[in-house]
């Protein structure tokens, strides 16, 4: 009898082992294994090699086929540059003023935002884990849970640092949870990814939340520094009898246009 069912029993046992492995790893926060790092690094290098001829062909197409209208585009861009330069001058003035005020308040800006600039080399918004790959890894000082931001706001956090590259979990992923606070009325909640955007959990029915209000990090869990912009409230919903409001958040960052990001390092020092 057992002999007859030997093969299915072995298969079920092996399958059960793999299932156990998956469930065990979900609840474990261990550093990325050597083999995993090796495969990710290899894949990034191979992808770069395979992308190269495609990019070259695309560039050639853009350079030679779409030359029509370049002069007009050039004129428009020059005007845009002038406008942006004026804008940058204004921002620089404000930045200098801000710096002076911070110095007055004896805030050590360097310690608060020790960062690295990284280039986005892969985007996985449609894979089971909504993530992206950046060209900075543990050899540059990147560690697990380091926040990743842009000038527009929060992008996510590092979940898998390899040697030269790292995988960053985007805030729109369903497993991403961030302690957040509404900027004006200081209502606290947890921002969770919904796949396309985010939503704030645990906002009480009596809390006043307005559409368009900025949502920033609360800095409670020590993963994200306080005050990073996450996004803006896009919809507020409350069902009769419900304890919490349903608050949808539009991320401040446009993930489809990400090219360069900043990784905030030195988390341990801050803690």
């Amino acid at each position: 009898m057992i002999r007859r069912f030997r093969t299915p029993i072995i298969l079920v046992l092996i399958g059960g082992f793999f299932l156990f492995l998956a469930v065990y790893n979900i609840h474990r926060e261990e550093p990325t294994s050597f083999l995993r790092k090796l495969i990710v690094e290899g894949a990034v290098k191979l992808r770069y090699l395979l992308d190269y001829p495609l990019k070259s062909a695309k560039e050639a197409w853009q350079k030679y086929i779409f030359l029509v209208g370049v002069t007009e585009e050039n004129k428009r861009l020059k005007k845009e540059i002038d406008r942006l330069l004026a804008q940058v001058a204004n921002y620089r003035e404000a930045y200098e003023e801000n710096k002076r005020l911070r110095n007055l308040l004896k805030l050590d800006e360097e310690l608060r935002l020790k960062h690295l600039t990284a280039r986005v080399i892969g985007m996985e918004r449609k894979s089971p884990v909504k993530a992206m790959i950046i060209n900075r890894g543990s050899s540059h000082g990147v560690k697990r849970n380091d926040p990743v931001i842009t000038d527009r706001g929060l992008v996510g956090r590092v979940i898998e640092p390899s040697w030269q590259v790292s995988r960053v979990l985007l805030i729109i992923d369903e497993t991403s949870c961030i302690d957040a606070i509404l900027q004006t009325n200081r209502v606290q909640g947890i921002v969770q990814g919904t796949g396309r955007g985010c939503s704030i959990k645990y906002v009480g029915k009596t809390d006043e939340v307005k559409v368009g209000e900025a949502v920033v990090t609360a800095g409670i869990s020590h993963v994200f520094p306080k005050g990073l912009l996450i996004g803006y409230v896009s919809r507020v919903d409350w069902r009769e009898g419900g304890m919490f409001k349903k608050v949808e958040v539009e991320p401040a960052v446009d993930f489809s246009r990400l090219e360069e990001v900043m990784v905030i390092i030195g988390q341990d020092e801050r803690k």
Partner: peptide, 12 residues
């Protein structure tokens, strides 16, 4: 490894 899921999910 390449999709970013924890080790074991796709294996299973």
């Amino acid at each position: 490894c390449l999709s970013g899921t924890v080790t074991g999910i796709y294996i299973f």
